[in-house]
């Protein structure tokens, strides 16, 4: 188990982390490239940039239109996101690992904060998952990956909590640590290729939506004729 752990923390981590980092940069650049191409082809080049920006920023704030309709969901989601980002990045043990391998370190979470943030993330993730399962309109819209993602994200948080805060014997410790590292690696690989890519694509979403309405009115008919389905509904 120790050598598996070494492998998962060393080569496997470098592989998955590089895929995540470059993969996110890649899809961001490809999106920008697509937007640029679409903008060049758009018939109406007057983009309401200010509106796009303000709408984009609106989505970053927890209190928005969704908060009015579904206050619990938006609060839980915000708190879940805070824990999801803050704990892995600022955890003392994680920062120490970075410092040991490449010599870079940054501020770390106090011990108690890390403890409560981890618990809150686990609780909110379960709450969100329940909400998705039992709310009719949510479950109607959900795909398989929407259920699998919260479960996958829970694994490193639970195993990490066991390793960092509970007193377990070395065999269990190593097992939980291996699960922690492997599930983390799996998440890294999947991020750029699944819906979690919204972590970098989010700021562009409003631009994409706006540009879609900027083509000439005949575009849909042209699409149909290209596909040999003249007269069909788009």
């Amino acid at each position: 188990m120790e050598s598996w752990l070494e492998f998962a923390k060393g080569p496997l981590f470098r592989l998955t982390f590089a895929i995540m980092l470059l993969g996110l940069i890649r899809i961001f650049m490809l999106d920008i490239w697509g937007i640029y191409k679409a903008y060049r082809k758009a018939g109406d080049k007057n983009m309401p940039w200010k509106l796009v920006l303000s709408r984009g920023l609106e989505w970053f704030f927890p209190v928005n239109r969704v908060a009015r309709n579904r206050p619990f969901y938006s609060t839980f989601s915000t708190l879940f996101h805070i824990g999801l980002l803050v704990v892995p990045i600022f955890l003392y043990a994680h920062v120490k690992q970075w410092e040991k391998s490449i010599g870079i370190s940054w501020i770390t979470l106090p011990f108690d904060w890390a403890y409560w943030l981890t618990i809150s993330t686990i609780v909110f993730a379960i709450a969100l998952l329940m909400g998705r399962m039992f709310n009719k309109s949510s479950s109607f819209l959900s795909r398989k990956q929407d259920y699998l993602w919260p479960i996958l994200l829970l694994i490193p948080f639970i195993t990490g909590f066991v390793c960092a805060h509970l007193n377990v014997n070395p065999t269990y410790y190593q097992f939980f640590m291996l699960m922690h590292v492997l599930s983390g690696n799996l998440i890294f690989i999947l991020i750029p290729f699944t819906k979690i890519a919204h972590c970098v694509l989010m700021p562009l979403s409003q631009v994409v939506c706006t540009i879609a309405w900027k083509f000439p009115p005949e575009t849909d008919e042209a699409v149909c004729s290209t596909l040999n389905k003249k007269g069909a509904a788009v």
């Binding site: 080569p11 993969g23 890649r26 490809l30 490239w33």
Partner: peptide
């Protein structure tokens, strides 16, 4: 766009393999 997608994916994947193969 399709060739960009393919080529950039090839670059990213082989870069990651290169990082993984670095002897510790």
């Amino acid at each position: 766009a399709a060739s960009l997608t393919k080529f950039s994916l090839a670059f990213v994947l082989s870069f990651a393999v290169g990082m993984a193969l670095m002897p510790e």
